[in-house]
């Protein structure tokens, strides 16, 4: 039986995590706008708060006040559920992410597997959004997304497995502990795994150069073309939370997680995570987008064989 104290504890943790997600998503949106602006020799948001830091708050308020437009002929249930199914897995992923030595909601002993499982749920939400919108552009976007995310999951999981093999555990804290003093990225096979991971993870969260599900130059906005107001904001929050999560996982699996000298663990963790986020933003604002068939070809012909090869080499190294 749950005691009252347990329930309060769960609530406190839940509020902290949700608060962190909201703040971090808003911060990332502002930051992305700033990074893109400076790359393009612009200022970006400057009006709301110092250098526009509160711009995302203003945007959120605007989106909350907006009318909820439901397209005629939409599949109502699917249409309403889709944004939640996109957001919920990314919130759930926070359970196993270690922010510091003791700063983790629950150190599951199947942490990495749990993350892999959650990353597949997101695609259902996106596909539902595409299907429920009763819009041809959205439908194509949803179809593309399903194909893309399923293909990129394989190299993603394979590269995560390599790390688990090294640490001989699926628990995130044990993976971090195994990297004490010597980060995974410093092993050549792990560096390769990191490259495969970061490419597939970019594809998982639909960012340039793999943003074909929302490809605005051909599909207008892909699966979220018809969404407005708060439901659109949910997709947005989901997208940026996912961005944070993939960077956090990369920092945990390959860059030693919260470990580092002098500064407290959580600070190190955030520095590493935001460093990876910055690289992803930098890539986004530089490259063109791949085409859907090239994207699939890249996943199946390049990334998957490379991951299997890497897996075999790592296994051999461990058994040697």
């Amino acid at each position: 039986m749950l005691s009252i104290l347990d329930i309060i504890w769960v609530l406190v943790i839940g509020i902290i995590v949700l608060g962190f997600i909201a703040v971090s998503a808003m911060f990332l949106i502002w930051w992305e706008r700033k990074v893109s602006a400076h790359i393009q020799s612009r200022y970006g948001p400057m009006r709301v708060g110092w250098h526009g830091v509160l711009q995302s708050v203003a945007d959120a308020v605007k989106l909350l006040l907006k009318e909820n437009i439901v397209p005629a002929g939409a599949d109502k249930l699917v249409w309403w559920l889709a944004p939640f199914i996109v957001v919920v897995p990314s919130v759930m992923a926070f359970v196993v992410i270690p922010f510091g030595k003791n700063l983790i909601v629950k150190d599951l002993n199947v942490g990495a597997l749990y993350l892999m499982a959650l990353s597949s749920v997101c695609v259902i939400g996106i596909f539902m959004a595409g299907w429920g919108s009763n819009n041809k552009y959205s439908l194509i976007g949803g179809m593309r997304s399903a194909a893309q995310i399923i293909s990129y999951e394989i190299p993603l999981i394979l590269s995560m497995i390599i790390v688990s093999m090294q640490a001989s555990s699926l628990s995130m804290q044990k993976i971090v502990a195994a990297q004490a003093g010597y980060w995974n990225i410093l092993h050549p096979n792990m560096a390769l795994a990191f490259i495969v991971y970061i490419i597939s993870a970019t594809a998982e969260v639909n960012r340039v150069p793999f943003d074909i599900p929302e490809a605005e130059s051909e599909l207008v906005a892909g699966f979220h073309t018809e969404y407005s107001g708060m439901k659109f904001a949910m997709f947005f929050i989901g997208e940026y939370t996912n961005l944070f999560i993939i960077s956090a996982i990369a920092a945990t699996l390959f860059f030693g997680g919260w470990q580092g000298p002098v500064l407290p663990g959580a600070v190190w963790f955030l520095i590493k995570t935001y460093g990876i986020v910055f690289v992803l933003m930098w890539v986004r604002w530089t490259f063109p987008r791949l085409r859907v068939d090239q994207l699939m070809g890249f996943a199946w012909k390049v990334l998957t064989p490379v991951s299997f090869f890497n897996l075999a080499v790592t296994g051999w190294l461990l058994l040697k």
Binding site: S36, Q40, S41, R42, D211, A215, S217, T286, P288
Partner: peptide
């Protein structure tokens, strides 16, 4: 053209500059 290929806005802004 770069914008159409999905290089989102950056080359376009450089060209406009």
């Amino acid at each position: 053209f770069a914008q159409d290929l999905g290089a989102f806005a950056t080359p376009l802004f450089y060209c406009f500059r």
